[in-house]
């Protein structure tokens, strides 16, 4: 079975994020960059399939040079090879372009059975790239999955959204995106980290992926930020320490502010 995992490197979501003044894109200069947590879970799902069946796992990431670290981390977890799409012209790529590039990278892998992704990135939060990749590759979209079962040429999955749950069934090849609740990802072992250094990673650019495209026709984004304003940070209000009457004091505060 051939599995492709799509992973993204993102600024650590525990840190403050800023927009660059020049072009309103995410400022990556000072941010700590990490493999997106949900992507570790997508990788885990691929690797646990590999633990029980004959599977070859390719990890694909689009991003600047630093994204190679995210690829290496998944290789250290146990994936077999990597494709790193790295091209300055992709800076500021929108959901559509990102998905087009990822779809083109997936097409470089022969006979793909399963494409795995996270269901949301912590930086963009579009929660839409996997659905578009499915559209472009004409694969069934099996997204927001918290339980996955692959076998006999099909996927069965539990999709969870704010409306409840749905059981999905689709033939392979298929695209699956996973939620943060699907599993606990493994840690790369020391041996894995050493082995990852020798695993093959193809670095490709737009010319490799789209040899026939002319630069002029290639849109990086179809939207434009007109204005970006930092919202004022919240400041501390009243603080009390409970002396046995805090519940009553909160009630008085709420009444005074017409919230009760």
């Amino acid at each position: 079975m051939n599995i492709v995992v799509l992973v993204k490197q993102v600024p650590d979501s525990g840190a403050e994020r800023t927009l660059s003044r020049a072009d309103h894109t995410l400022d990556r200069e000072d941010a700590d960059l990490v493999l997106d947590e949900i992507n570790e879970r997508a990788a885990e799902e691929a690797l646990s399939l590999k633990d029980t069946a004959d599977a070859h796992v390719t990890v694909v990431s689009m991003g600047p040079e630093s994204a190679l670290e995210a690829v290496r981390k998944v290789l250290a977890m146990g994936a077999d090879r990597g494709i790193h799409v790295c091209d300055d012209r992709l800076r500021g790529a929108d959901v559509l372009t990102t998905a087009k590039v990822l779809a083109a990278a997936v097409r470089r892998v022969a006979d793909v059975d399963l494409v795995l992704a996270g269901d949301a990135t912590t930086d963009g939060q579009a929660s839409a790239v996997p659905a578009v990749v499915a559209d472009l590759l004409a694969l069934p979209q099996v997204t927001h999955v918290r339980k996955l079962d692959v076998g006999a040429g099909r996927v069965r999955a539990e999709r969870r959204t704010e409306n409840g749950e749905a059981t999905l069934d689709a033939p392979l090849p298929a695209l699956v995106s996973v939620t943060e609740k699907i599993n606990e990802p493994r840690y790369p072992s020391f041996k894995g980290i050493m082995a990852a250094k020798k695993k093959p990673v193809d670095t490709v650019d737009l010319d490799d992926l789209f040899p026939d495209a002319d630069d002029a026709g290639f849109l990086v984004t179809r939207t434009r930020v007109v204005e970006a304003v930092a919202r004022p940070a919240r400041s501390a209000g009243t603080r009390i320490t409970d002396d046995g009457s805090a519940g009553r004091q909160v009630a008085a505060y709420l009444i005074a502010h017409k919230l009760l």
Partner: peptide
């Protein structure tokens, strides 16, 4: 909630 952004479509 850290930024308010205004944007528009430039294609399509």
């Amino acid at each position: 909630g850290s930024y308010t952004v205004r944007s528009q479509v430039t294609h399509g």
